[in-house]
Amino acid sequence: MAQLTYRDALNQALVEEMERDESVFMLGEEVAEYDGAYKVSKGLLERFGDKRIKDTPISELGFAGLGVGAAMVGLRPIVEFMTFNFSILALDQVINSASKMLSMSGGQINIPLVLRGPSGAALQLGAQHSQACETWYLHAPGVKVVTPSTPADAKGLLKSAIRDNDPVAFMEGELLYNVKGEVPDDDDFIIPLGVADLKREGGDVSIITHGSMAHVALQAAKQLEKEGIEADVLDLRSLRPLDVDAILATVAKTNRAIYLEEGWPYLGVGAQIVSIIMEEAFDDLDAPVLRVTQADIPMPYNKKLEIWAKPGASRVVEACKRVLYV
């Protein structure tokens, strides 16, 4: 095991998969000569040359189309979005082309494509640069969505995403790139898509979450612990495929759950999870499942208001207490 940052873990995954399979290449804004806006692709240009690490113009719709088209004829493109906010320009090719190609073609043409980059809010970047984009991608059948929260998850899941034969939106956390953690050295270390990870064990209440919010959930669990409340923290890691069994298991254990996510509430990820729990675990519940989300507003620039609008640990603690009736 090595101590790696989330950034370096992603970098390793890219290197290993590009070594392993010549049809894997990556393109995006500033990925080559600048080493990536967040330095995830550091050293790749030198190592793989400018055919496999390609700087693009600021043409998100165009280069996402390139990714889908190249995947149609057998390459395995990785498209980096400088942030997922800008991928909204490319959504047409994701929703109208990538997600439907296999179905429209009667099963003849699959799209082994990874769309990756940071998603969600960083610090004071304002409304257009602070969006959790999971829901845009999750809504369309045909796209898979992965949201790693730790360096090991980042590496193991990115390798799986690259090897997967379908379009995968791989959403990283902008504030996670410097987070350190243990990462297995093994070239073949992968984490299969669709397997959640219980990041903390506790029997009183379940905090179910994904992506960078796993860290907020763990903070909240620590605070709850001081008050004698033990929380399960279930990090879904992959939202489609979704580890429904793991969700049902934690709910069966604690009988009380909240969903924590970075995005907006309306039709958010939590809405789907709550619906699944209602349908499949109604009898296990001792309280309604609550959701903690970003405030239902565009993200404000002002520092205090931004902190207020984000789903912080204290809101999670409060929601846990509400489902515990304490």
């Binding site: 304002g126 257009q128 002002n302």
Partner: peptide
Amino acid sequence: YGKASGTSGGVGGSMH
């Protein structure tokens, strides 16, 4: 400075 007397009431910031 993100203040209420700003051009966007402190909600927009430098970019907006």
